[in-house]
Amino acid sequence: MPCPPDQATLRQRLATAGLRATTQRILILESLLQLPGHPTAEQVHRQVVLTEPTVSLGTVYKTLDSFVAVGLTKRVASTEGACRRYDSDCQAHHHLYCTNTKEIIDYSNPELDALIRDFFATHGLDNFQPHSFSLHIAGSRIS
């Protein structure tokens, strides 16, 4: 597990996003940043209750949704259907989904991004101007 970010950094991130730095928000943000991959709200909750057992799963969901609303995190579709996963990396990138392991792998490639931008510049959609994009590619890891 990565080193936890310091409290001042967490407080600053929340303040910059326009959120009050409550104890629960700090714990939830810290857990989201520490957990590997793209955790579910349930995984974040399991981490948070180790420190603060009174935090409910509903509070974790509401807090993560508020983080999404202010751009602190992104919601990521998953191969499990209704399961919501969260990505603390808000930089533009794509996701590869391993259908065997259910793993979500971050993928960045400027050449691919340029191809997509060029495609829409020449083959645009009627009455639609894309501002951002993220590919979700499903497949299997090859050993």
Rank of each mutant, 00 (worst) to 15 (best):
I104G: 02
T122H: 15
A114N: 03
I26M: 11
T9I: 05
I104M: 05
C3Y: 02
L29Q: 08
A8M: 01
Y107S: 03
T99D: 08
K74A: 11
H94G: 01
N109C: 12
L64I: 13
G18N: 04
L19S: 08
Q47S: 15
L57W: 01
K74N: 15
V76H: 03
G37K: 12
T51C: 05
T22N: 12
L29S: 04
T9N: 01
G37A: 12
T54Q: 13
L96R: 03
A92L: 06
S143Y: 14
F128E: 11
S108T: 08
F133M: 04
V55R: 09
F120Y: 12
P110S: 04
D6K: 01
T16D: 13
T63R: 06
T9P: 00
P39S: 08
K62C: 02
H93Q: 01
V55A: 14
A69F: 00
A41D: 10
G124P: 06
T79M: 07
V49S: 04
I26N: 01
L72V: 09
P53A: 08
L72P: 09
L64W: 09
S56G: 12
G124V: 05
S56A: 07
D6W: 00
I104D: 03
T59G: 05
Y61V: 10
G71M: 07
A121D: 12
A82E: 15
Q129R: 14
L32N: 09
R75W: 02
A121G: 14
D65H: 13
A69H: 10
E42Y: 13
N127K: 10
V48F: 09
V60N: 05
L35I: 12
S132A: 10
A121E: 12
I116A: 02
I28T: 06
F128A: 14
P130R: 05
Y86C: 06
F119N: 03
L125C: 06
D118Q: 08
T63M: 05
L19W: 05
D65M: 08
V55M: 12
S134M: 04
P53T: 06
L96Y: 07
L35C: 10
Y97P: 02
P2I: 08
L57S: 02
D6H: 02
P2F: 00
L29N: 05
F119Y: 11
R46V: 08
V76A: 11
S31W: 07
S143C: 13
P2D: 02
A17L: 04
S56T: 15
A15M: 03
D106M: 03
T59Y: 01
S108D: 03
H136I: 00
Y97D: 02
L115S: 03
S56P: 06
T16R: 11
F67G: 07
T59S: 14
Q91N: 11
R11L: 00
F128G: 10
N127W: 03
D106Q: 10
R20K: 15
V44R: 13
T73Y: 08
K62V: 01
V55H: 09
Q47N: 14
A114M: 02
L14R: 03
L72Y: 09
L32K: 09
E42D: 14
T23M: 11
D106S: 12
R85P: 02
S66A: 13
S140Y: 09
A92R: 05
L115G: 00
Q129H: 13
P39V: 07
D89C: 07
G81R: 06
R141L: 15
P39N: 07
S78Q: 06
N109K: 01
S134C: 10
Y61G: 00
V55K: 09
T51P: 00
A41F: 05
L27Q: 14
L27Y: 11
Y97W: 13
